[in-house]
Amino acid sequence: MFDHVVFGVSDYAASKAFFLKALEPIGLIVVQEGAHGIEMSADDKTSLCLFQTDEKPARLHLAFVAQNRQQVDAFHRAALAAGGTDHGAPGLRPHYHAHYYAAFVIGPDGHNIEMVCHHPEGQPFQHS
């Protein structure tokens, strides 16, 4: 869980398009965009913010919360369609915990982008 994540990207247009498409399954939309970059959110509680930079940032691992396993599956398909590289197909990762269902892709700047659902199949999502 996070309030906001801010990082620089080498190709603003490609990264903006990638994250909007890849995270469409959880309802990510543009909140605001201007001279300082873009703020996107899916829940009015947390934000993902990008800005153009010539610096080469260290790789990040961003994990987004899915309400169900279908969102994890949809994220993986959408992220690949948006130009991401597969880094782990949707599936259980029992070495983390019994119900850890996730998918991973590498985004335009080499960041490891994950979508994860922590509860058993069919159990309703409860946001804490």
Rank of each mutant, 00 (worst) to 15 (best):
G84V: 02
A102C: 07
D43G: 07
I38A: 10
A14E: 14
V9K: 05
Y100C: 06
A66N: 02
L20N: 11
V72P: 04
M1N: 14
V30R: 09
D11K: 05
C49P: 02
H111P: 00
D43W: 02
H36N: 15
A63P: 01
K45C: 09
Q70L: 10
F18R: 09
R69P: 05
L60C: 02
A102L: 02
R59E: 12
T46I: 00
E114L: 02
C49H: 10
H4Q: 12
K45D: 12
F104Q: 01
D44T: 12
I26N: 02
L23G: 09
A98G: 07
G84F: 01
H111R: 05
A63C: 14
V5A: 12
D11V: 09
V6P: 00
L80V: 02
A103P: 06
H4K: 08
K45E: 14
G122K: 12
A79P: 03
S47F: 13
L92V: 03
N68L: 04
A103H: 05
E114I: 03
H95Q: 14
T46F: 02
F75M: 02
I38K: 10
G122N: 11
H99T: 15
F104D: 02
F18L: 08
V30G: 13
Q70A: 14
I38R: 06
V9C: 11
D109A: 03
L23W: 09
F19C: 01
E55A: 13
Y96N: 07
P108V: 10
H87R: 12
R59A: 14
A35T: 11
T46S: 15
D73S: 04
H119M: 00
L20D: 09
V9M: 08
Q126S: 12
L60Y: 05
K16P: 04
A98Y: 03
F7S: 06
H119V: 05
Q70R: 10
G88K: 03
